[in-house]
């Protein structure tokens, strides 16, 4: 079993959107996948996955021994091999203990899961530390702006000092960079950092670039992970991300901007 943390340091960059899409993508490939919401107190993942009305027990209930893991895991309505472990809305972040999280992870392994995706809260406090503690790999979600890049850098440093792998001196957590909310047009106009600038700064292998799109907003309002939005660039970009994560070679898409030609500008069309 591989444990993948989706983290960023900064809030609002697309961690939960990415966790939902990425976990769904792994499940679509046939892997038995669990996605855990570590944002205790501000649960969002269940909304984006469209299962908020089926939440009876949550992660904290399991950690505190009030419910069994099998009772709290919610089966995804789109993909059979995907399960969601929602966060609690009423408890605070201190409810997550190291032993409790470890117990849940061991149990997931015993249940035969291939991947566990941990959706980290923003910040560098307890919740975020718990989310990255057991990680084998990390997807660091970054927006093309300086403060987001700085926070990602900070969280990368924490990954390499506070994760179990780091503490026990095992092979380091494998790092992946995912640039989200990317607008090739605004990069072209010099308003945004390019993905190359970001990669040069962070020096982490690039897993993908997700274009800025209204489709993401629609998807989260409808409770559908973005990867299921057939025909959108966002869904395709996330599918590429999953492919690259699994070791397939996919060229980057949606990163260059072509000015609309004169004819297009006059007659419209796409």
């Amino acid at each position: 079993m591989r444990i993948v943390v989706v983290t960023s340091g900064k809030g609002g960059v697309g961690k939960t959107t990415t966790s939902a899409a990425f976990a769904s993508g792994l499940a679509l490939r046939g892997f038995k996948t669990a996605v855990i919401d570590f944002d205790v107190g501000l649960r969002n993942l269940d909304l984006i996955m469209g299962c908020e009305r089926r939440v009876v027990y949550d992660f904290v209930n399991v950690v505190q021994g009030e419910a069994k893991l099998t009772q709290a895991l919610i089966k995804d309505k789109h993909v059979d091999t995907l399960h969601i472990l929602p966060a609690s809305q009423t408890k605070d972040k201190d409810a997550l203990t190291e032993e409790g999280v470890e117990k849940v992870i061991k149990e997931l392994e015993a249940m035969g899961f291939d991947y566990v995706v941990c959706d980290s809260p923003a910040g560098i406090e307890r919740g975020a530390l718990m989310a990255l503690l057991f990680a084998d790999e990390a997807i660091v979600v970054t927006n093309p702006e300086v403060s987001s890049v700085r926070d990602s850098d900070r969280i990368l440093g924490i990954l390499q000092s506070k994760s179990r792998r780091a503490i026990e001196g095992r092979d380091p957590v494998k790092e992946h960079l995912l640039v989200t909310r990317y607008s090739a047009k605004r990069v072209e106009e010099g308003e945004m950092l390019s993905y190359k600038d970001i990669q040069e700064l962070l020096r982490v292998p690039l897993l993908g670039v997700i274009p800025e799109s209204d489709a993401v907003l629609h998807a989260s309002n409808q409770g559908v992970p973005a990867i299921h939005l057939k025909g959108t660039d966002v869904a395709e970009a996330y599918a590429d991300v999953v492919s690259r994560f699994l070791g397939e070679d996919k060229p980057l898409r949606f990163v260059s901007y072509e000015k609309p030609s004169l004819i297009k500008r006059i007659f419209g069309g796409t």
Binding site: R150, D151, L156
Partner: peptide
């Protein structure tokens, strides 16, 4: 790479950074 928020401290000798350091 030495990342934002990280500190490298050598109270005696030299430091050699083989992957550079980042802002912060």
């Amino acid at each position: 790479p030495v990342r934002a928020g990280q500190q490298i401290y050598a109270p005696e000798g030299d430091v050699v950074l083989l992957a550079g350091s980042n802002p912060g």
